[in-house]
């Protein structure tokens, strides 16, 4: 069976940061990533990041991914596997099972694990939401920004959080018309400046509105939106929009199946968007060999994911007795 000092599950901003940090202390690191490429959501982020200069503010997300990969490539003690999914954790012996591509199956026994499994998109129910043309914002970003495929001609964005606002801006950059953004709350949830960016390009933001129906037989040909009252019940006039894409940006939930499986103590924290592993300030869970970082530890954003990954990486190295740089 394969062995490693630190196994990092997930190759997004948190996982790459954890791997680089643990490797910098001389740990032998194995990183698995289910996607075909490393970088997680960063590779789709064509906008500049907020924050401070030290945390790469003003740099576009995909550039940050390149910088992290460059840092990682400087360490000979890191093995990375893409197209490789960690399918299970076995608490009785601490073995992780992995499937690489379609046919290669292997077991690995790490001394320590950093779970950096990211998040899953939420969807909301409405009639005809099964139609082709109803996308999660992540899929729209993947099509546009990773594969260079224009997802459609005219879009309704559902949700004015940062993802909804940023992806709307990116859609306009890709030549897609944004017919409008609906937001259930009475103000945008994302940064005001992101809203201002799309507003000045002529995109209406319908506050206290939701999507009530997708229109179409074989695929989306329109959407119906409606105002909602204080109890989020639709009221008043229904408005039809002529769109071929309905893009859902209504929130994320931490991906934490492996943490449940490992028996980590889990708590429901609404502010972190769901169940998350109870963890200490060094990102260590209630399981002495398992750390968590990034969106899997609670929905934040990439800058905090990178900081959490660094902390988890240092902390695993310390736990292995390698806590100081030579």
């Amino acid at each position: 069976m394969r062995e490693t000092d630190v196994m990092v599950i997930g190759g997004g901003p948190a996982g790459l940061s954890a791997a680089a940090e643990a490797a910098s202390f001389g740990c032998d690191v194995t990183l698995v990533e289910s996607d075909l490429a490393l970088g997680g959501q960063l590779i789709k982020q064509t906008h500049k990041f907020f924050g401070s200069k030290d945390e790469r503010a003003g740099t576009r997300g995909f550039k940050i991914s390149e910088l992290l990969l460059e840092e990682l490539s400087g360490y000979g003690n890191v093995k990375t596997y893409t197209n490789c999914t960690a399918t299970g954790y076995y608490p009785e012996d601490g073995v992780v099972t992995c499937v690489r591509a379609e046919d290669e199956y292997f077991k690995i026994k790490p001394k320590k694990i950093v779970m950096a499994t990211g998040a899953q998109e939420r969807l909301i129910p409405f009639p005809n939401n099964h139609l082709p043309g109803v996308y999660g914002a992540g899929a729209v970003q993947t099509l546009m920004n990773v594969y260079g495929v224009k997802p459609g001609d005219k879009v309704l964005m559902v949700g004015a959080g940062n993802i909804g606002l940023i992806v709307s801006y990116q859609l306009i950059q890709a030549g897609v018309q944004v017919a409008g953004i609906v937001e259930a709350m009475d103000k945008v949830g994302g940064y005001w400046v992101h809203a201002a960016k799309v507003r000045r390009l002529g995109v209406p933001i319908y506050l206290r509105h939701t999507i009530v129906e997708a229109i179409g037989e074989q695929y989306v040909t329109g959407a119906v939106i409606q105002e909602i009252d204080e109890r989020f019940q639709p009221q008043g006039e229904r408005k039809s929009l002529d769109v071929d894409i309905i893009c859902m940006a209504v929130g994320l939930s931490p991906t934490c199946e492996l943490l449940w499986q490992a028996g980590c103590e889990m708590v429901f924290v609404p502010e972190l968007c769901g169940y998350v592993a109870q963890r200490d300030r060094n990102m260590r869970t209630s399981h002495k060999d398992i750390w968590v970082a990034g969106d899997a530890a609670g929905i934040e954003e990439a800058s905090s994911a990178m900081v959490e990954g660094r902390i988890a990486g240092v902390s695993t190295a310390r736990a292995l007795g390698r806590g100081t740089h030579e």
């Binding site: 907020f50 924050g51 503010a57």
Partner: peptide, 15 residues
């Protein structure tokens, strides 16, 4: 500058 909301960001100052 039209930045009326408190957000964690300072490149305008640092640059």
């Amino acid at each position: 500058i039209e930045c009326p909301q408190r957000i964690p960001c300072n490149p305008c100052h640092t640059s």
